[in-house]
Amino acid sequence: MAEPLVTLRGLSRRFDTPAAFGRPARSMMAVRDVSLDILCGATIGVVGESGCGKSTLARLVLRLIEPTGGTVHFDGADITALSARAMRPLRQRMAMVFQDPYSSLDPRFRISDVLEEPFRVQGLPVPPGRITELLGLVGLSPAMAGNYPHQLSGGQRQRLGIARALALSPDFLVLDEPTASLDVSIQAQIIALLERLRAELGLTYLFISHDLGLVRYFCSSIVVMYLGSVVEVLADPALPPRHPYTSALMESSFIPDPAARRLLAPLTGEIPSPYNLPPGCAFATRCPAATDLCRHTAPTLISDTGGHALACHHPPEPAAGGATP
């Protein structure tokens, strides 16, 4: 339990757009200096809004895109230094589930083809009975093996995506918003399935989401990102957040209880362009507690002994922390 399976150190990714049609070249830091230990058996939730870099981070961790700085260690090996060929056997131990269950399946592949693909790619024989076993594992009928993806519902497609990720019995799954394009009732089904698989197979998850409520339910610790940087790490999802952005995220979630109805203090101010971030704290333009210090100097992420980390010049006192009703 205590061994880190995945370790990120100073992981960064910059995207450059070359100059074109009179527009000057520009660049943005999609992920800036992220360090994180993912312990064996943990479920780390990465939460943030679109453009915060959470999907880029997910792809950096699996080295689907190359970092511009920093390292990723998987079970002790620095995978950022490996060639694609040397990386291939390691890929049996890590897999990804994607957000869009429609575009994540090749329309020409039958369900059995989808589940055999991981073995083909790795040059391994398909163990007899493995396809049936995988379908059963995610709650799909083995009778469907000859069907095409367009014959499945969104929820069934996502189950198939999970089965494909599990085909080579990995230790580590990156879940990139696996429920964001599904109905709530199906979302809950998929989350329940992921919980069961975690317990049965002893999986470690990196769960990317925009839904703080879901992350607080599903994850063992939470990383909050804003415009490429980690602003807060909550070692215990039940703890009240201290960063004003995390508090705002929490207050923005719609709790299904009319008795808990409240007037939001909506965030004012605009989200700065990621190509032109202000010199100070990126959240200062929308933060109710921002001062001149925030606008000129970026806060650094400071961890306490309990595993909580915060990047804020003026955090509220822990006792007065923004616990919601």
Partner: peptide, 12 residues
């Protein structure tokens, strides 16, 4: 829309 924006718009 994004979560924080969603909350704002619904409220408005």
């Amino acid at each position: 829309l994004d979560v924080t924006v969603q909350a704002q718009i619904i409220q408005l």
